[in-house]
Amino acid sequence: MTGGPGGPGARRGARAPYLFVAPAVLLFVAFLAVPIGYAVYLSARGLRLTGGGVFGTREEVFVGLDNYVKTLTDPEFFAGFGRLALYGLISVPLTLGLALLFALLIDHAGSRARRFSRTAIFLPYAVPGVTASLLWGFMYLPSTSPFSYLTRELGLGEIPFLGAGGIYPSVANVAVWGGVGFNMIIIFTSLRGIPAELSDAARIDGASEWRIAWHVKIPLVTPALVLTGLFALIGTLQVYGEPTTLRPMTPEISQVWVPLMQIYRDAFLRDDLPLASAASVILAAGTLLVSVVLLKVTQRRASGGMG
């Protein structure tokens, strides 16, 4: 018999899970594990001039942790994180707050045109980041901005979108405009999973829609809020496209305005891949650390609340 515990059929059944998982594992190894391993390998290498004189040649040698030390002692690198923090203080709360507000409004029992509203709010997410940055950049430039045109006609002067006082809100606005819809869909999907009986019972008890949202809906969608918050935080640490696209339009954005811009400069303009790899590893490790801490803190609070 072939269907017994040790027969061919049983062996094929035991191999089936591995066959289904194999494509995902291969993709993970090829496009994530191998690049990460190569970046770590490169970060321990360095370019040194050998031979001396004008005819010396650059060779790649093992330098250990020198690139990490150089990166961690570079004031420009940490200044980029400071600018990133200011950018995140604007973009993350606005993205999550607007996403939650729109999700609650669409989930409201008396709301109309839900499909149209969801599509209209989500649509900016489908616009590529570079395209969105260009569109907003032209609306920021004094010569092409419709907002500055109106303020000039009113005698109020031009709005300094790309000036020293407005550069952070202007860059963050591009990310908020594109990211609200995606986060709103996640929160709205979580809201639709809440049993209607809970809201109905609260209404019978005389609770207003505001109190229902605050005391019933928002606590139950906390996991979705944590997930969207994590996405927004990771997106902030990896911001690159918006400031790079807007950089030719303003002197307020330098070549190393955020860490990823400095990594790009070191890798492709200075041809120093080992140094760029070390900075990339530090940025990736920092992102992972922040994500784990955020998840641990939220899980601890959730456990404390349940207790």
Rank of each mutant, 00 (worst) to 15 (best):
V176G: 02
V226G: 04
V54Y: 06
G229T: 03
V297F: 12
L19T: 09
T50R: 14
T287S: 15
F102P: 05
A278N: 07
R270S: 12
I263Y: 02
G64K: 11
G193V: 03
I185E: 05
K70R: 15
G137I: 01
W210I: 10
L260N: 11
G179T: 05
G286C: 10
E242F: 04
G4D: 15
F122G: 13
G178D: 06
V297I: 15
P75N: 04
D66G: 10
F122R: 08
D266P: 05
V176S: 01
Y18E: 03
R203M: 04
S148N: 00
T57G: 11
T73H: 13
V221W: 00
L89G: 06
T222I: 08
P5N: 08
G179K: 02
G181H: 05
R247I: 05
G129S: 15
A99S: 15
G286V: 12
N67L: 13
H215G: 02
A224V: 03
D271W: 14
L42T: 06
T50G: 05
A224E: 08
V29G: 02
A103F: 04
I90G: 02
G137S: 07
Q299G: 15
K70M: 08
Y68C: 06
I204N: 06
F138G: 00
L150D: 03
L294I: 12
P251Y: 07
G110T: 12
K70T: 14
P195Y: 00
Q262R: 11
G51K: 05
L47W: 09
G193S: 10
R247Q: 14
T298P: 04
P251M: 04
G46N: 06
M306H: 02
R12T: 08
G129K: 03
P93G: 04
T131A: 15
V29C: 11
G241Y: 00
Q255G: 10
A232L: 00
L123A: 15
G51F: 00
S199N: 12
M184S: 00
P243L: 09
M249S: 01
L273H: 06
I204M: 09
A213N: 05
I186K: 00
Y87Q: 05
P124R: 10
G155P: 09
R112N: 07
A85T: 13
S148V: 01
G88R: 06
P274K: 10
A99K: 08
L294F: 13
A16P: 07
S145C: 08
L42E: 14
I194Q: 04
P223K: 09
A39D: 06
F55L: 15
P17N: 05
P219Y: 01
L27F: 10
L154A: 14
G80W: 03
G304P: 01
Q238E: 11
L26T: 07
L275V: 07
P251N: 11
A201K: 07
L225K: 01
T2K: 13
I253R: 04
L220I: 07
L154H: 02
S254L: 02
P17E: 07
V127T: 13
L94W: 03
A39G: 10
L156H: 01
L237N: 04
V25W: 01
R192I: 04
R211T: 12
L134W: 05
G80Q: 10
